[in-house]
Amino acid sequence: MDELLKILQHNALESHETISRMLEIPVEKVAARIADYEKRGVIRGYQAILNEDDLDQDKVTAVIEVKVTPQREGGFDRIAERISGFPEVQSAYLMSGAYDLLLFVEGRTLREVAGFVSERLSPLEGVISTSTHFMLKTYKRFGVLMRKAEADQRLTISP
């Protein structure tokens, strides 16, 4: 992967000046390349990685395995895109193995998510079955551990 993307994935707020030094390219070039990635849709947006368990909020997340029948024209894409259109669906992936689609669905309460599954998802034409698991606690997201970082254990000057 392009090192520029690697840097942004680690810290999207890194200044163009710092990136320019890290990659030894002019600042204007950093800006132009980022703009190009945005225009081409390689970079889809920038978000904060939250430790949601620490926020006092009403929210549940379910992971839903969905079996579907691929359609004559469009295969899995059509049904997957239809499902992805629901705002409740945060992420959706086509999977190999025992089921076809894996969804991450958010709602305020268990009942709300259950309602989504029974009233919106399951009745869709092409959906054969669903299996819903509720998430209890987050240990790591997007490569970031959610527990507090331990203090640096290294000696301040060594060796």
Binding site: R154, L155, T156, I157, S158, P159
Partner: peptide, 14 residues
Amino acid sequence: VSTMKDVISLGIGE
């Protein structure tokens, strides 16, 4: 260094 607080160390050889 170890008598001081909040030092940023570029002295660490590991």
